[in-house]
Simulated scan of single mutants.
Amino acid sequence: MSSARHLQPLPVPPGSDALDVLPALERALNGEGPALLPVRGDDGAEARRLTEALSGPLTSAEDSSDDPTALVIATSGSTGTPKGVLLTAAALRASAEATHRRLGGPGHWLLAMPAHHIAGIQVLVRALLAGTRPSAVDTADGFRPESFAAAAQHVLAADGPHYTALVPTQLSRLLSAGGDGLASLRKFDAVLLGGAATPPALLHRALADGVRVTTTYGMSETAGGCVYDGQPLDVAEVRLDGETGPILLRGPMLARGYRHQPEAAAFAGGWFRTGDLGRWQDGRLEVLGRADDMIITGGVNVAPLPVERVLAEQPGVREVCVLGVPDPEWGQAVAAAVVPADPAAPPAEPELRAAVRERLNAAAAPKRFAFLPELPLRGPGKPDRRALAELFQA
């Protein structure tokens, strides 16, 4: 390129004010102006931290006049260190257009999650490419079903398909609250669900309540979800290294790489190495969780996600997160943080342990439990395993 383009911070306001970024986002998608670094508009300290780490001129390896970098999405991954995912306009378009093809055509979108994360900003990208005006949920007091219902009215009044995207925690709240929020949710032609693993019990409950849920798997490096209901979008390829090996992804929706990391091994050979483990089940991709989260207890490997699925199906369990914590006898002990449906009457530990032992094996049965009012979260609805590990060790 003749002169280096700069990466400019884009403060994204929370809630319905997030729509203020649409003009800047549209210019970036058209290759006009600077590349954009979306940051939280309501957290100055976090915005400064990401700006200092990631802003500035883009190098020749980070940009191209033929396919300009439109967005750099900040992600801490599993390390806590900020990384910038270089997303080109073409990658964002490929993802958004493939989503519309899978769902049944361009439509009207409701933004219900923060738009500085990839899942939120892709809602805005899809709306721009569809030529429709999105609406956004007012989250001034957090995510509330009545606010969702109010914002949904504007989207549902328009002709054509109606779409939204949620994280499992939001879906759970809408199902539990019932009323206008759930009634509105039922009217959407598709509800994309991602950001964190979806407990099967929650998915079954949503479908039984008439909600058209589509589970998604993807990340910032793939411009958002690229595997829907276990099957890749038409632009995406999935490869596994081994029967339950690491998941690799390829396609035009892939990021260019990482900011300040021109030779990142994760992108070598045109495939993105996700760091997740998975397997094929009846022709669908089943994600087993992060390889880094694998628990080695008494010499036996235990994947947390299957344990979480068993526990989430037990009576009295609303949410659960399973992790490994240091143990002098076992090396690591399987620990489960459980949010009870009724805090005054948490489920019995022996019954939870027995359910895992029966469905999986003795090694997977949690040795420690913590009953919490809520799970600590990071990013768009992901359990904060680091915070939970500190809780167990304390």
Score class of each variant (00 low, 15 high):
173 R>H: 04
18 A>K: 02
265 A>D: 15
106 P>I: 01
258 Y>I: 01
342 D>I: 02
177 A>D: 13
49 R>A: 15
306 P>H: 13
280 W>Y: 10
385 R>G: 06
365 A>C: 13
62 E>F: 01
51 T>R: 05
241 D>E: 15
91 A>Q: 09
232 P>Q: 14
41 G>C: 06
271 W>L: 13
259 R>T: 12
307 V>L: 01
343 P>H: 04
128 L>P: 05
3 S>D: 14
219 M>D: 04
84 G>I: 02
202 L>K: 08
368 R>Q: 15
169 T>K: 12
121 I>H: 09
290 R>D: 06
315 P>T: 10
196 A>P: 15
164 T>A: 11
219 M>W: 07
394 A>I: 02
392 F>E: 05
67 D>S: 06
146 E>C: 04
131 G>Y: 05
367 K>W: 04
354 A>R: 15
95 S>M: 04
385 R>I: 02
224 G>I: 08
83 K>C: 00
262 P>G: 11
123 V>I: 13
304 P>F: 09
323 L>Y: 07
68 P>S: 06
219 M>Y: 07
135 S>E: 14
36 L>G: 07
212 R>Q: 15
216 T>F: 03
332 Q>T: 00
346 P>T: 10
337 A>M: 05
1 M>K: 11
259 R>N: 12
22 L>Q: 06
301 N>R: 15
102 R>W: 08
347 P>R: 07
116 H>N: 11
19 L>K: 13
290 R>F: 01
252 P>Y: 07
241 D>Y: 03
41 G>S: 09
23 P>R: 07
360 L>E: 12
276 D>C: 09
106 P>S: 03
